[in-house]
């Protein structure tokens, strides 16, 4: 499954941009607050309409039946809010709706992949933010879609689970999925992603291997930070 994006724009936030993601590729989407990461992910999921095209295996999202699209891609919003006192397991089951059935084995696999099996039967509203975030991520993984669009899946997670979640995403890529994941942790993004897309003020200003994208110059210009012996510092 390949993702082809050409001249995609969402006025006034996103300027026209083009890139491709190959099957098996784990692509990090980085950029400062307000760069347009969330807007780009929503556009890739087909939730907004506008200029340009998004194609999955050559077929435009706009030409797909909503259910066919839902079977190919999963989108995880950055919002971790839930309204109803649902069990984690029932939340994850929602991810299987496009496939039409409930598959307890698949739910168990997805919960285990994000280390959420221990509280799968608890009301999600009684969970901590990080625990709830992992349950919601399991919902996106459970149907094993070919395209994963994840908005800051490791925000609110402790260091161990950040690594665990990125391992799980690497696993998804290994089975052939194309993964696009918005990240704020530049060290982890550089260490774990095959490629980075750098957004700044709605423009795609970097697309390549992490070392080529996160240069000292871009760090200073775009993120206004520099790496010092003691860690990150404001530039």
């Amino acid at each position: 499954m390949s993702l082809t994006v050409s001249n995609l724009a969402r006025s006034p936030i996103l300027a026209p941009l083009s890139f491709n993601v190959a099957p098996g590729e784990l692509v990090g989407l980085v950029g400062p607050n307000g760069a347009g990461k969330t807007t780009l992910l929503r556009a890739l999921a087909g939730l907004t309409s506008g200029m340009g095209s998004v194609r999955i295996d050559g077929i435009a999202l706009t030409d797909m039946h909503p259910n066919a699209r839902a079977r190919r891609l999963a989108w995880l919003p950055a919002d971790r809010g839930t309204v109803w006192p649902m069990r984690g397991r029932d939340i994850v089951a929602l991810g299987l709706l496009p496939l039409g059935g409930r598959d307890e084995a698949a739910i168990d696999v997805a919960l285990a992949a994000v280390d959420a099996s221990g509280f799968a039967d608890r009301d999600v509203q009684s969970l901590s933010t990080g625990e709830r975030a992992r349950v919601l991520l399991a919902r996106a993984l459970v149907a094993r879609p070919q395209l994963l669009l994840l908005d800051e899946p490791i925000a609110n997670l402790d260091p161990e689970h950040r690594l665990g979640v990125l391992d799980a995403l690497r696993g998804e890529a290994k089975r052939g999925a194309a993964v696009v994941v918005a990240l704020h942790d530049l060290d982890l993004a550089a260490a774990r992603c095959d490629r980075l897309l750098l957004l700044d003020a709605g423009r795609l200003i970097g697309d390549g291997v992490p070392n080529a994208v996160l240069t000292l110059a871009t760090l200073a210009q775009v993120f206004k930070v520099r790496r010092a012996e003691t860690g990150w510092q404001r530039a």
Binding site: R42, A45, L47, P66, A74, V83, W84, I91, L94, L97
Partner: peptide, 20 residues
């Protein structure tokens, strides 16, 4: 019924799950 279940995670997630 099924659409309402999907709406538990918001209108956008429901739409991404194929619900009109």
């Amino acid at each position: 019924r099924r659409g309402l279940d999907a709406l538990a995670l918001g209108e956008d997630v429901a739409a991404s799950l194929g619900v009109d």
